[in-house]
Design a protein around this nucleic acid. Structure first.
Length: 575
DNA sequence: CTAGGGTTAG
């Protein structure tokens, strides 16, 4: 239960009134006006007028600073900025180095939920402290300035704060702020690179590093971070434990995730949710549902995200009735109102099961405005089940909401092409050209000996490129001997003018696979992370390679994992 | 004189 909200903002009811009176009576406030500081700070978020009257009566820098700090961490951070303005107007109080860190934290919090982001207060504060000569003088100010620019999405400015800070001032929190700035911008390889330059690492450092590894699928580096942590700690704290098991799951290493899960103390709902979601996408949806049952049996309440993981498990297991049941019982049993994400999971669930009419009916019945994600789930199902009629409807709905949606354009154009309606194909193509729509280029990441390599389709940038392409040639011959025919169905017309088969044979995940094959010993697991969905051709090549070369290959694509082993895949060819 | 920075996972 949340604490009861303050019921009044009048000065009369403030509980510290008695203390205030005593301080006045015994003359303490006269002797030291800063004695009002704790009173004003503790009143700021519940009885602001009272706090302001205290500050007016006893205006000291110290009192303003503590009150700004209190407001900065309270429910209305903009009041911290407002109070700073009134501080500037009061000649008896001058901002000092203690004023700025909480003020900048308040400015950063103002950015969190807004778009477009109002960066103006923060940059004004920066200008203000710069005029006072406090720029680059104080490591606390540097760290909070850096965090503010990170929150504003201005990485160059954040980096500049770091670069301009004197080297002897670059302590661990400042490095950690920089790390999190890169992390928040999605620059994961730079996070790995930066962390290697750090003089030391603490838990916050490792959280950023492990999180970056999770995004990249960089298992070796993630394992290194885990070992580094385990050297100095007896048990795993909840937050790092959750980050670690998420990392193992997102690298497809389910066993290690289980062991971290078992040794993590004080698991919270996030810990459980990450584990359930990880099992669901790693081909173990039944285990995910068993774990959910265990979670409930120990009295841990699921939250909205747990339920997304549970519904995703049902979808991956093909458990239509169970999934619908969970969605239906959410409001009653867990007091959770289904969100559009939950409906999306069930549309996905119905869609995979081929129940396209029912999925369509569900979309029409949701109590929200259906979004691109919802229609997109249906569109994917229509592509898999080759339902042109509903697919066209979904694609048109998507294009109404987002005329630049590449998937919908490609679907429509493929439908028209299959039907021989070339004039309509041309129309879609022209529209795509006009809107400058393109599918993001496919890229794959493979990590070898702790170094992350990224490949684009047809990439020649790797120093061992010749050997990679030689290996790729061998793989192509091997799989065709096994009866594999290149499946060009999924090659979309708009990639380029190259021959489709050549294009297909140089998909980024195949290049990553080839590098994995030449750089690791027989029997070693090859782990690849792909930014898009794996294509049908690559999927069947991976299956054959896993058998012929006796390899376990784990591919993480946009939505799930494919564990290839002995010629088959954990996704059961359904993705 | 007093006090202050980084906090992640789905």
């Amino acid at each position: 239960m949340p604490p009861p909200a303050a019921t009044t903002t009048t000065t009369g009811s403030f509980p510290n009134k008695a203390l205030h009176a005593r301080l006045l009576r015994n003359g303490a406030l006269n002797a030291d006006p800063s004695a009002a500081a704790p009173l004003a700070a503790s009143a700021a978020n519940s009885s602001l007028p009272y706090a302001l009257s205290l500050l007016q009566a006893h205006p000291t820098t110290f009192s303003y600073n503590t009150t700004i700090r209190s407001l900065a961490h309270g429910p209305s951070p903009h009041l911290a900025v407002a109070l700073y303005r009134s501080m500037l107007l009061n000649p008896l109080s001058n901002p000092n180095n203690y004023t700025y860190p909480p003020l900048l934290a308040a400015c950063a919090r103002l950015l969190a939920a807004r778009s477009p982001k109002p960066a103006a207060p923060g940059t004004a504060v920066h200008a203000s402290l710069f005029r006072r000569g406090l720029d680059s003088r104080d490591r606390f100010i540097s760290a909070s300035l850096l965090s503010f620019y990170a929150a504003a999405g201005d990485l160059p400015a954040a980096r500049q704060v770091f670069d301009r800070s004197p080297p002897n001032q670059r302590d661990l929190p400042l490095w950690n702020s920089l790390l999190h700035a890169y992390l928040s911008q999605g620059l994961y390889t730079q996070v790995l690179h930066l962390s290697r330059q750090m003089p030391a690492a603490d838990e916050v450092t490792l959280l950023a590093l492990v999180s970056a590894c999770a995004h990249l699928g960089a298992l070796d580096t993630g394992r290194w971070a885990h070992a580094y942590y385990a050297r100095t700690r007896r048990s795993t704290t909840r937050n790092l434990g959750t980050a670690l098991l998420n990392m193992y799951m997102r690298c497809g290493d389910v066993e290690s995730a289980w062991s971290v899960f078992r040794e993590t103390l004080d698991k919270d709902v996030r810990t459980w949710s990450v584990m359930i979601a990880g099992l669901a996408v790693n081909g173990l949806p039944r285990d995910a549902l068993d774990l959910f049952a265990e979670m409930k049996s120990i009295g841990m309440d699921p939250d909205s995200i747990t339920m997304t993981a549970v519904l995703s498990a049902c979808a991956h297991a093909g458990m239509v009735d169970e999934g619908k049941g969970f969605l239906g019982c959410m409001p009653v049993e867990y007091r959770l109102q289904p969100t559009i994400e939950h409906y999306g999971c069930v549309v996905d669930l119905l869609g995979r099961a081929g129940k396209l009419e029912e999925a369509l009916a569900l979309i029409k019945s949701v109590p929200f405005e259906a979004d691109v994600v919802l229609w997109g789930a249906l569109l994917v199902a229509c592509r898999v089940h080759k339902n042109v009629h509903i697919g066209q409807m979904a694609a048109r709905e998507i294009l109404k909401l987002d005329p630049r949606h590449a998937g919908a354009c490609v679907f429509l154009s493929n439908v028209y092409a299959a039907d021989g309606k070339w004039d309509l194909v041309q129309e879609v193509r022209n529209s795509m050209k006009e809107h400058r729509i393109f599918k993001p280029p496919g890229s794959s990441i493979v990590e070898l000996d702790g170094v992350v390599y990224e490949f684009l389709s047809g990439d020649h940038s790797h120093p061992q490129s010749d050997r990679i392409y030689a290996m790729l040639d061998e793989v192509c011959k091997t799989v065709s001997l096994k009866g594999h025919k290149p499946s060009t169905k999924q090659v979309t017309f708009d990639i380029d003018e190259e021959d489709k088969e050549v294009c297909l044979s140089q998909h980024s995940e195949k290049l990553a696979l080839a590098l994995g094959l030449i750089s690791t010993k027989r029997g070693a697991v090859i782990r690849i992370v792909k930014n898009l969905r794996i294509c049908e051709d690559c999927h069947s090549v991976m299956k054959i390679v896993s058998e012929v070369y006796d390899r376990v290959i784990v591919v993480r694509d946009r939505n799930r994992f494919h564990h290839f082993k002995n010629g088959s895949c954990s996704c059961l060819d359904y993705w």
